[in-house]
């Protein structure tokens, strides 16, 4: 058992590792990739990170409230399917002549419904979250399939044009969107009693219950919020590609990676909103920089994999405490 001071130095070393990797890669691109540092490129990176970012925020909320054990703790594997279904509903409605307002409300409603079912399954039916959200994502995925017949649904509206366009100072509206939603979620999680409760419930459910907090309400709330964020991501996606297309399942594991990578950016090795946002931007910068210096995108998954192993390996070496499973 290391002394508190040692532990502190070990984790600060770890943070140096995550921030160091970020800085080195940023510097590398700044030197090697032409146009990387331009304002428009950097804001484009934020825009391109928006969908993954919103999904990862949802995942982070669930992980905070469910505790840090990925297998038995909080995890939402239905986020990718939720993205697909909500985008399909949005695109279908617009295509059938609904106005963007109705489509938006319907998509958000679908996301909330997905979150609510997850909440019921995890909190009241007490199904292991990994299993509950995985099984439910099959149903959600199936509904998307029914709605789209596994084909592209094209939809355009002025609202979509606005959201995928650029706004004040030439910055993409989606970049503003990601920043604004991140700040809102950050405030809710790190600056309100609600957020404090979320952390307490995730870290020590028994202690939180003994202190009179409602574990069920917090955990259920995290799944509903995650569902909502999934459908916001869907509206972003539908605006970006003018409709919905099959293949949302490709987001399933990258979202998990982003949320777990975010852990290495936090001081105490826990899920935080700031850490997740940094991890998402990190992944976005990687994809962008590789494109600029003409490295095949085939490398990106591998680099993300090495990065997560490297940073987590760094943690375990420095903490000298084995993490469970």
């Amino acid at each position: 058992m290391p002394l508190p001071s040692e532990r502190w130095s070990a984790t600060s070393l770890l943070r140096t590792g995550a921030y160091g990797a970020f800085a080195i890669i940023f510097l590398w691109f700044a030197i090697a990739a032409p146009g990387f540092l331009s304002f428009s490129n950097l804001t484009d990176v934020v825009q391109q990170s928006a969908i993954l970012g919103l999904l990862a925020l949802g995942m982070t909320l669930v992980m905070i409230a469910g505790g840090n054990n990925v297998i038995s703790g909080g995890i939402d594997l239905s986020l990718a399917a939720n993205l697909g279904l909500s985008a399909a509903i949005y695109a279908r409605l617009i295509q059938n002549g609904s106005d963007a307002m109705t489509a938006t409300v319907a998509a958000l409603g679908a996301g909330l419904a997905v979150g609510a079912v997850n909440a019921v399954a995890v909190v009241w039916l007490r199904i292991v979250p990994l299993l509950a959200t995985l099984a439910f994502s099959k149903i959600v995925n199936g509904l998307e399939f029914v709605l789209t017949k596994n084909s592209v649904v094209t939809a355009t509206s002025t609202a979509q044009d606005w959201l995928s366009g650029t706004g004040f100072l030439g910055v993409p509206e989606m970049a503003y969107g990601l920043v604004a939603i991140s700040i809102l979620v950050w405030l809710a999680v790190h600056a309100t009693p609600l957020g404090l409760r979320l952390h307490a419930v995730g870290a020590h459910p028994e202690a939180a219950r003994a202190a009179g907090l409602s574990v069920s309400a917090s955990v259920a709330g995290s799944y509903v919020a995650s569902g909502l964020l999934g459908s916001v991501a869907a509206i972003f996606s539908a605006s970006l590609v003018s409709g919905s297309s099959p293949g949302s399942g490709n987001y399933l594991l990258p979202v998990v990676v982003a949320a777990l990578l975010g852990v290495t950016f936090s001081r105490r090795q826990v899920s935080t909103i700031g850490g997740t946002v940094l991890a998402v931007l990190f992944i976005g910068l990687l994809a962008n920089g590789f494109q600029l210096i003409n490295i095949s995108s085939d490398w990106i998954d591998g680099v993300e994999g090495v990065l997560i192993l490297f940073l987590v390996g760094w943690t375990t070496f420095n903490q000298k405490e084995t993490l469970e499973s």
Partner: peptide
């Protein structure tokens, strides 16, 4: 060897495996 939790270790392997196959 490096004592990485199985979930993370195999997730990393999965992503590295993607790239190897693509390349």
């Amino acid at each position: 060897g490096i004592r990485i939790p199985t979930f993370l270790a195999t997730l990393g392997t999965l992503f590295i495996g993607h790239s190897i196959q693509q390349l």
